[in-house]
Design a protein around this nucleic acid. Structure first.
Lengths: 148, 148
DNA sequence: TATTGTTATACTCTATAACTATA
DNA sequence: TATAGTTATAGAGTATAACAATA
């Protein structure tokens, strides 16, 4: 049996289709509640890493600076984050989660973990082990690529 | 060692974060070219499965019927698909790919397969095998869930 | 009446270009 | 001059509500 994974043929396509199905699913699950995928991603980042510069958020999320300005403006309007002036560089803005934002991100994180857990629960044990290895590994190489 | 995968604690979160990173990556790769993720997904489906009813496309993509009407209208404007009247039910519309649309979806599919292949190439052999098992398996259970 | 599709309207998300304030 | 952020504008993608045509 040859190595199907590295083929340019049918199996590569199968993986792409599978990957796209995952993305569609994630989009639907993430958008199910009141928090959009983009807002969830930003809020989750601030929740994990603490207050962030707007430029840093834009870079990390892979969007433009004006795009992040607008995202933060919407989230501020919704009471999820606040802008605080940077003390050392008066041009800068730090974005931090409000209590409501922090609560929401915890709740949404739990919901998504639950959805993923249900999904994992429908896999065979062997597939489940494979997913537990593959997902973090893929995330790792993506992160490595992003910082090149 | 207990089963971290099924925990509600830290490892579940790690998987969620990994999953979200994959989704962000997919969004960026998919949007890199001229074809958006949504258009790519619709065109890919028509390419795989042939002409589809608009309602069926909306259901399969998990969007509303008006949303799909507008998506198809944009794609028709861009010369990627065309509407053809359904012969048996005169209310219905079939959406099929134009030659240009079919060409584009083949090209994009190859590009995405290449991007995924590069990603896979950075994994350890063990992780690569795991991903080749996990991605199709996850896609399978998602599809099963969607049709419930 | 129910289904298929469209139109009208509004919102989020995103981009590029032009601008302001600070470094 | 360069950087951080905003404002202006435009377009994709999505939703719900109201509608038309057909079943």
């Amino acid at each position: 049996m040859h190595n199907r994974v590295m083929d340019s043929g049918g199996s590569g396509e199968e993986l792409v289709v599978a990957f796209e199905q995952l993305v569609r699913y994630a989009r639907q699950v993430s958008t199910a509640g009141s928090l959009s995928m983009a807002a969830s991603s930003v809020l989750g980042r601030i929740g994990r890493e603490g207050p962030q510069r707007l430029t840093e958020l834009a870079r990390a999320e892979g969007v433009s600076q004006p795009g992040m300005t607008q995202q933060v403006t919407r989230m501020e309007r919704d009471g999820l984050v606040r802008r605080i002036a940077s003390t050392d560089d008066r041009r800068g803005v730090l974005v931090e989660a409000t209590d409501a934002g922090a609560d929401l991100v915890r709740q949404r994180r739990a919901e998504r973990a639950e959805a993923l857990r249900e999904l994992m629960g429908r896999l065979d044990p062997q597939e489940r082990s494979a997913a537990a290895i593959a997902l973090p590994a893929l995330a790792r190489v993506i992160q490595a690529e992003a910082s090149m």
